[in-house]
């Protein structure tokens, strides 16, 4: 009896200490997809700072920026006096997360891999770190349901090319990229499956690969000088995708982030326009 009482007491105490530490109110998020999850969980008002890759939703853009998550400013984070730091496992510089911990901050590192499993871990992780009661389970269930429904919808054998342009020269996404994972999840065949990572396009090669569909991001399109300029590029112009103007343009974070808007991303990808006119 006595032992049981002690156990109960311990459990109650554990509950109280947990709930005391479990509801952080000043959160800094290092990674766009994590920021999105915080907002999707309805806890956006607890964010006091984000990194520069946090471009969605609109409200995130107004928050103080502590630098790009791969090179965030240690002091910048500390100065915001957060009681929780959510970080992608790609956040850096390498020793900075450790230094945050040494300064007494609670740092939760979450996987950044472009897979459904990792996304679920991110959702559970963020919800648990925020001390939300349902642990993000509702969100994950909903995600599974929508993704499964979308997966059932066939898109036909479409050869897709995913273009990213950050510097003026379009680069194609090969395997081992979140872009490739996204194409596969949507049911497309990546024409660059022989290549690893992002590489500058070989214009001859692209014409030879004959993609039926070109997928690109908003920022990439802007860097390429707009849709018409992109499709008029030598090599690209000769592809079936360019001739039929089958191009999907999506917001960068939506397309590459593997965040909570994954179902929306899949939906937009699958609704591949037969003819994109402008």
């Amino acid at each position: 009896m006595k032992q049981r009482l002690a156990l109960l007491l311990a459990a109650v105490m554990a509950f109280f200490t947990l709930s005391a530490t479990a509801a952080p109110q000043r959160v800094v998020s290092l990674g766009g997809p994590l920021t999105e999850i915080v907002y999707a969980l309805g806890a956006g008002n607890r964010l006091i700072g984000v990194d520069q890759s946090s471009t969605y939703p609109e409200a995130a853009k107004a928050l103080p920026k502590v630098g790009y998550y791969r090179a965030f400013s240690l002091e910048g984070v500390v100065a915001l006096k957060p009681d929780l730091v959510l970080a992608s496992d790609q956040a850096g510089p390498p020793q900075a997360l450790e230094q945050l911990r040494r300064l007494g901050l609670r740092v939760i590192v979450l996987p950044s891999a472009p897979t459904l499993d990792a996304l679920e871990q991110r959702m559970h992780g963020v919800a648990a770190a925020l001390g939300l009661r349902n642990d993000g389970r509702a969100m994950v269930t909903e995600l599974r349901k929508q993704v499964d429904a979308l997966a059932a919808k066939q898109v036909g054998p479409t050869r897709a090319l995913l273009l990213i342009n950050r510097s003026g020269n379009p680069e194609g996404a090969g395997i081992d990229t979140s872009a490739d994972a996204m194409l596969k999840l949507a049911g497309y065949r990546n024409v660059l499956s022989a290549q690893k990572g992002y590489k500058p396009l070989s214009l001859e090669g692209i014409a030879a690969l004959k993609p039926d569909l070109i997928v690109t991001s908003t920022a990439s399109l802007a860097a390429s000088g707009g849709l018409d300029a992109l499709l008029a590029r030598p090599g690209i112009a000769a592809t079936p995708a360019a001739k039929n103007r089958r191009v999907i343009v999506m917001d960068d974070l939506l397309l590459l982030g593997y965040g909570p808007r994954l179902p929306q991303a899949l939906r937009e990808l699958k609704a591949a326009p037969a003819l994109a006119r402008q």
């Binding site: 791969r70 090179a71 400013s73 240690l74 790609q90 850096g92 510089p93 020793q95 900075a96 230094q99 081992d176 990229t177 690893k196 990572g197 992002y198 590489k199």
Partner: peptide, 24 residues
């Protein structure tokens, strides 16, 4: 740089710009 994957590429960029943030 050509062989690097996306993550490595970003590390390279930051290394090339130099940083004192590693001070300890």
């Amino acid at each position: 740089t050509y062989l690097a994957d996306d993550n490595q590429l970003r590390s390279l960029t930051f290394w090339n710009m130099g940083s004192l943030a590693g001070a300890s």
